[in-house]
């Protein structure tokens, strides 16, 4: 112990070989993300849920459609897509929880002080976090959704469904599913940044995707109110859900708005952008 500091590098004024950079900050966030067990577990669960739900519904489909007549190609594609993306309804909850934890875990443990000491301008750290987490979640989502599509494809023909992998609408919707997962995750990351607390952040985030939509549905069921239906359409889960709907088209029927894939995606992006601006302002202003 008393041989102490011989190994401290010799230059008292600090060696200038290293410098803070955004690329370095991205690398830092990547190391952080992959070095926590909770991350690995959460992504494992996302993959498992997507694949298992896909297999489950592909198997039950044979019972549902075996005796039925022939389906149109569009119905077949739509159904094959449902098989591959059904798990998103559940895996989005995992993505949301993980998105909150990515930042609230730092506040909870005090790690955030180390992070902001290394990146004192703060916002680059938040952006790097969002980029790394968003990209990884997108890739995990993409892999799990495409894997599900490929695994379930041989199970479907006996139900009269033959997915056409050459259909660009079909492929776009599969990618859209992964995009939706990533955006829900980033939205939750922004919420976690605003709330700074794991329990509160998860509650707020799941409230938005899990609680609010059924509440609106109840209102719709009771009152048939158009505003409630339209509001529900613009919530992240429904608007974002248009990203992975097959050949989604926009319509306005009797005052009830339905978005197409692009519009839905833009509404989802708007949610992320607004939450992110709020998160950025608060992050910059608050003491840690």
């Amino acid at each position: 112990m008393t041989t102490t500091a011989a190994a401290v590098a010799p230059k008292p004024t600090g060696s200038r070989t290293a410098a803070l950079s955004f690329a370095g900050t991205l690398r830092s966030e990547w190391i952080k993300l992959r070095s926590l067990r909770s991350t690995v577990w959460c992504y494992g669960i996302v993959i498992a849920i997507t694949v298992l739900f896909g297999i489950l519904i592909a198997q039950t489909a044979s019972a549902t459609f075996a005796s039925g007549g022939s389906l149109t190609q569009e119905d077949q594609q739509s159904y094959a897509l449902l098989v591959s993306t059904l798990g998103i309804g559940f895996s989005q909850l995992v993505a949301a929880v993980l998105g909150v934890l990515v930042i609230s875990g730092e506040y909870g443990t005090g790690m955030i002080r180390s992070t902001f000491t290394a990146v004192p301008k703060r916002l680059p750290a938040l952006f790097a976090k969002a980029i790394v987490f968003g990209v990884v979640t997108f890739v995990v989502g993409l892999v799990s959704i495409f894997a599900t599509a490929l695994i379930t494809a041989p199970m479907l023909p006996k139900s009269g469904i033959t997915p056409d992998f050459g259909d660009s609408q079909f492929l776009l919707a599969l990618v859209g599913g992964a995009l939706y997962l990533a955006l829900i995750g980033i939205l939750s990351l922004a919420i976690g940044t605003i709330v700074r607390n794991s329990a509160g952040g998860i509650a707020a985030s799941l409230g938005l995707v899990l609680v609010l939509p059924p509440v609106l549905q109840i209102i719709v069921a009771m009152t048939q109110a158009e505003w409630a239906q339209n509001l529900a359409m613009f919530l992240p889960d429904q608007a974002g859900g248009r990203l992975y709907a097959y050949a989604a088209e926009a319509s306005v029927t009797g005052g009830v708005i339905v978005l197409d894939s692009l519009q839905g995606g833009l509404v989802m992006l708007a949610w992320v952008a607004v939450m992110f601006v709020i998160a950025s302002v608060l992050l910059k202003r608050r003491d840690v």
């Binding site: 803070l20 830092s28 952080k32 070095s35 730092e106 443990t109 790690m111 955030i112 180390s114 750290a125």
Partner: peptide
């Protein structure tokens, strides 16, 4: 306590160091 409890010391140092290369 300015360290994430779920991470190893090595990974903590690597992550903080990475910001500065």
């Amino acid at each position: 306590k300015a360290v994430h409890t779920g991470r190893s010391a090595l990974n903590h140092l690597l992550a903080i160091g990475a910001t500065h290369g």
